[in-house]
């Protein structure tokens, strides 16, 4: 029985045409798959590159390379990216927060942003009422800081009641830790070197004009020459743990002060 079935089935075999058609079909399918898989790989690589580019671009664009602190009574800070665009505006007191909410300088060039802020009704009114406007630039990227400082100096040198200065990056952390803008902190250090009892709360409530007047009156009372924010001698002599910060801050201020 087994032999009979075997010999009967032996008569059945795959025709050459059937084998050839199968071979051609499978090879064609493989080729298509290769092409498809290459396309998928290409699209995938492109998507990965695009993703990296977007994420990288986002990180670069939103990376702060300089901070500009604008203080009069509204105190606010502008964070600038490497493309000289404003990426963040933050108020450091109530007036500052109101001003930050009222103006829209996001993604503007810092020159345009400063111009718009200075010409806002809040700040222009303060200046016309003998307020004192300070513009500080925090050194995070030295080259950019120099460029920004140069641009601001050009703008403030012919203006009454405005001055500019640069600050070290380490001062920013200290300033923010105690809730002051960089400009107010810079002035606070000067004031503290003359009156160690002054507190940050008191300074935060004062306008820049009031702080400047107080510095000048304290300087005169102590019979120490203090003119236009200069005073290395005082600073170095007073060093009691605050000396370094004060010294650096005041040192930078020399030569960049346009106070009238």
């Amino acid at each position: 029985m087994s032999e009979k079935i075997k010999s009967a089935f032996d008569e059945i075999y795959a025709e050459n045409e059937l084998k050839q058609n199968t071979r051609e079909y499978v090879l064609k399918k493989i080729e298509k798959r290769h092409k498809k898989s290459n396309t998928i790989k290409y699209v995938y690589s492109l998507a990965v590159c695009l993703f990296i580019f977007i994420i990288g671009g986002y990180k670069i664009y939103f990376n702060t390379t300089s901070i500009i602190s604008i203080d009069i009574n509204p105190s606010l800070e502008l964070e600038i990216n490497c493309f000289d665009k404003v990426i963040s505006v933050e108020g450091y007191n109530d007036d500052g927060e109101i001003l930050a909410n009222n103006i829209d300088v996001h993604f503007d060039n810092y020159n345009d942003a400063i111009y718009e802020i200075i010409n806002s009704s809040e700040i222009s009114n303060s200046i016309s009422e003998n307020g004192l406007l300070s513009i500080g630039v925090v050194e995070m990227d030295t080259k950019q800081c120099e460029k920004i400082l140069y641009d601001i100096e050009k703008y403030t040198e012919n203006q009454n009641n405005m001055y500019c200065y640069s600050m070290k990056e380490s001062d920013v952390l200290e300033a923010h830790k105690i809730g002051l803008s960089c400009g107010k902190y810079h002035a606070f250090l000067q004031l503290q070197s003359l009156n160690p009892n002054i507190t940050t709360d008191e300074v935060s409530q004062m306008t820049m004009r009031e702080i400047r007047d107080l510095i000048e009156s304290l300087s005169n009372n102590n019979d120490i020459e203090f003119e236009n924010g200069q005073g290395n001698g005082q600073c170095n002599g007073r060093g009691n743990g605050q000396g370094n910060g004060q010294c650096n801050g005041q040192g930078k201020m020399q030569g960049k002060n346009f106070n009238n």
Binding site: Y13, L18, K19, N21
Partner: peptide, 28 residues
């Protein structure tokens, strides 16, 4: 293996076109 596949197709299927389909499916 094509002869084995062909015989199995003959057992199960009733026309040549289906056999071609099975050959393509199996070898792919």
């Amino acid at each position: 293996y094509s002869n084995t596949v062909r015989r199995l197709c003959m057992i199960h299927l009733k026309n040549y076109y289906d056999t071609e389909d099975i050959f393509q499916t199996v070898f792919l």
